[in-house]
Amino acid sequence: MTADERFQQNKTVRGLLIALIARDLRVLVKTPWIIFSRGLAFLVQIFVFAVLMSRLVNVPGFDFFTYYAIGTVLVTVASIAFLTGYDVYEEAETGMLDYLLSLPLSRRGYVLTRAVGGALRSIIYVTPLYAIVAFIEGFSNLLDLAGSYLLIFLLATGITGLSITVALSIRDEDRFDVTLALLELFFIRFSTALYPQTFMPLAASVVAPFSPVSMTSDVVRSILGHGTVDLTVMLGLVAFVVSMLALGAAMYLRKIEGGYFD
């Protein structure tokens, strides 16, 4: 294959991957009511709940409103990233997956684009919300904002990979719903996104550091607060993303190998 042919082929593959991601995003803009309702929920969370709680919680040197506002962005990203699992489950059940898998894409490319598409969808959802938080809190260092944005994207990609894995591992609809809900509960509620580890009940405080949502929340706060990054936590997050993507890809291949919902 000549360099020119290789370039053309890569261009085609890129075009296909972009088209697949664009599909995810196109479906997203077709559901403005979901964006609106989630946006509204977010605003109520920070302007009612966070304001109220920050008045009730009075710890010297600790600004609960800022803490909660950043955490809410992370929680919203995580819960939207989980939605990709529901999409994939529905696609497998309705046969849409057969169609998608018959398209001229490599399996690896397909899984990667589903994860990235799901992550981008989450990012697009929260961008206006993140902008509100940044504006209120006066986060203006562009480098810090870009770094935190990248971390949020990584978290969304990893959770999308996880939700795809679950969607392709469980056949029973009720079990699938319960499993995803439990994972969401563990990842979000047992995390340091919305409350600091020091104030958590013992059981929750033991598991909280292992939640990727905790890792991301802590690093994002650290970047936005004093421009520093804990490399160990960063590595943990990257390991989560890579392992979830690998698991998602492996599940896809297993399903294709054996056929699914047969």
């Binding site: 599909r23 196109r26 479906v27 077709k30 559901t31 309705t94 046969g95 849409m96 057969d98 169609y99 018959s102």
Partner: peptide, 14 residues
């Protein structure tokens, strides 16, 4: 290969 499936397969929202 192009397949026209027995049961239509496309995004309902589009």
């Amino acid at each position: 290969i192009g397949i026209a499936f027995q049961d239509p397969r496309f995004d309902r929202l589009l």
